[in-house]
Computed example of a mutant assay.
Amino acid sequence: MSSSPSAAVRAAYDDLVARAALTADPAQRDAAGELDRVLQDLLAAKPKRLFGLFEKNRAVRGLYLHGEVGRGKTMLMDLFFAAVPFREKRRLHFHEFMDEVHNGIAAFRQSARGKDDNADPIEAVVKPILKSGLRLLCLDEFHVHDIANAMLLDRLFGKLFAGGVTLVATSNMAPDGLYKDGLNRQLFLPFIALLQEKTVVASLPSEQDYRRLKFAGQQVYAFGSGPEVEAAMDRMWLRITGGEQGTPGAVESIGRQILVPLMAMGAARFDFADLCETPLGTRDFVRIAHQFDSLVIDNVPQMDRTKSDAAKRFILLIDSLYDRGVKLAASFAVPLEQLGADDKTAFEFQRTLSRLAEMQSEDYLAKGLRAEP
């Protein structure tokens, strides 16, 4: 196994295979090699200090990795992002990035400068990104479905690439399949050409949906309390992570950090109180649903009227996980039908109970993540 920093992704992948956290897959290992190529090029293109100032970032050819759901794209992106040794990097879901862009455009247009007929809102959005020194932009689940995004991507990424930003993206479809049959798609074709020029397009074929294997035939909910329930959740966690215990981490949400007690292999483990007895809201839960494909939640209590706020957050959390298709394993103090006892949230809670029941079904567990929250 190579100890070279420029081969760090493949080394990390091989280590997971050696620890039996992953089953060896030649296609995944080849993709890890492609990510190592990007890493090596980024390290070689590190900006140099000239006359006391750093030279302009030099973009290197990135990677666009596509394949069907459950093939390990997110896991490989995890390994790559962790291996990149500099701080001038960002990773987020494609639609979250585009939300930031649209919000920036809207704010600029409402400003005094934005009212000038010659004002360029895309330039205004890109300028602070480049000024921050960003070198690497990692976008999960690149998926173009609406004309608002389709019509600005060519200029947006043209300016980012020109400014020295390297793109690494994952997607369920090849570039030629983006915005397929969309309105005025011919206007979108220059962006596809730009994407193919600025990234290496690589497929991740696989015979196996690894995410589905984690949950096949599993009882994902436990009820009651005590050592037996805790042990059942521990076993479920280790099955989901391939035996990895996990480490603490954080999720960035609206400029702040949501602490994650344990995260590993695209999964996160929280206590109910971590999520529902702290001041989190819908956008936070959507961010968590985009960050992880599986969640384990311990110690979900019966929610009487003394836990009205927690119950409301739990409703929002389950809505976000369900809409995204995230897989849930959880321990509950009481059976599902006894969870809610608060008149203020009774109607909404019935929908939550229905969704919880569906989320433990084989049909739900066999499906992939949905592209939209």
Rank of each mutant, 00 (worst) to 15 (best):
D14I: 01
F86A: 14
Q40V: 05
L238Y: 00
V334N: 15
F54H: 11
I240Q: 13
A162S: 10
E123H: 13
P190W: 09
F188K: 00
L195Q: 12
A357R: 11
N103Y: 04
S361H: 10
D304L: 13
K115R: 14
D176W: 05
F161Q: 06
M75Y: 10
A250R: 14
D30Q: 09
R19F: 03
M77A: 12
R235T: 14
H102W: 08
A112M: 07
D78Y: 09
Y64D: 01
L160K: 06
F191V: 02
H102F: 14
V229I: 15
K131P: 04
D274C: 05
G249K: 07
F86E: 13
D14Q: 09
Y364D: 12
D181C: 00
I147C: 12
G72M: 11
G340H: 14
D78E: 14
R155Y: 05
L275Y: 09
L35E: 03
K73N: 08
L156G: 06
D323Y: 01
D117G: 04
D30F: 04
R19E: 10
Q110F: 02
V220H: 14
P205M: 09
A330S: 13
G182R: 02
L317F: 13
K46T: 04
G67H: 14
D342T: 04
A264G: 09
G249W: 05
W237A: 07
H66I: 01
